[in-house]
Design a protein around this nucleic acid. Structure first.
Lengths: 169, 169
DNA sequence: TGATAATTGTTATGGACTATATCAAATATC
DNA sequence: GATATTTGATATAGTCCATAACAATTATCA
């Protein structure tokens, strides 16, 4: 390495001066970072999940749990392997997730009579009711916030582009 | 719960019949899931990171490491707290990340003479060279793929919307 | 048929990333 | 000069994600 072991702080325009009223901590320049797709995508995703969790606080549903409920409602009678793989969740990791939903009586595992190895997944009545409330919360608080921020047309364009990336990148 | 403990598989149009040539595993219906911002956003982000790692395989740089190098290059002379917080990384977690970059001689910690508590961060010559190669790889392999997929105009629109979400959601 | 292979749900486990508390050294505050 | 704050660091725990392995069950096929 070619750098010396100690160094002065680079001559600074605001912090170094005594007459300046102790300028702010001077935000860093993002530079090319703000043009990196991955960087912006990740930060946006974190913000969206954070907002989602706030909106769902009363129902205590994470994005992953919500996605399972949605998928099981739309596809009742599928087994764990099918549901998990559709969501990109590995079978072993899906077990605890389901244990949680089942312990809260939102979802049920039913031993299939066709193939006694597999567990058929179904929403319970409570699960359907909770999901219905969850959908309303998402629509009115979460997705509404997005529309407010981007506008309806942009929202659709964004979703389409993200889908394209998710499926074809 | 109101569901019975066992159940027949729902009468199936393809798999149940003996005369059909054993239809495909029948993909699940995503339904409303494909309209959920968080879901699509997360899947897109995973794909993008995956592609990034492939493009960077020869340099062994993760997205987080690349972002640190970019930020330190653009803002030499800042300390760990400043760089970490700008990237949304907690100070304790930033230590190991820096240990890695420093052990590979890409980045150096220099004890500041102004404030002997803090470590000034600088890229080494090797760090600058590696970063330059990394930028080229990202531009030609990674971001180019995005342009090819969305087109230049859409790419810019996407980045702008994601930035808006990251900053204002 | 029966031996072998494959599948399903599960457990155990390790790695990566994230979050909090705490510490010593150094600095700031008053 | 006593106290509080800041910085980098360690320890630690929690959450995801990934792989191997296992028992029960089913599929394959010689």
């Amino acid at each position: 390495m070619t750098v010396s072991k100690t160094a002065e702080k680079p001559a600074d325009a605001t912090k170094g001066r005594k007459d300046a009223p102790e300028g702010l901590p001077e935000a860093l320049q993002l530079g090319e970072l703000s043009e990196q797709l991955g960087y912006v995508l990740k930060r946006a995703q974190l913000k969206v999940f954070e907002n989602f969790l706030r909106c769902m606080a009363s129902l205590q549903l994470t994005p992953a749990q919500f996605s399972v409920l949605l998928l099981v409602e739309k596809n009742p009678g599928r087994n764990q392997t099918e549901v998990a793989s559709t969501l990109g969740i590995l079978r072993p990791n899906f077990v605890a997730l389901l244990d949680n939903l089942e312990s809260r009586d939102l979802c049920a595992r039913i031993r299939s009579t066709n193939d006694r190895r597999s567990h058929i997944l179904v929403l319970t009545d409570k699960g359907k009711a909770v999901l219905a409330r969850a959908k309303k919360l998402v629509a009115t608080k979460h997705e509404a916030r997005l529309k407010e921020l981007l506008g309806q047309a942009n929202r659709e364009a964004l979703l389409e582009m993200l889908s394209k990336i998710a499926n074809e990148f």
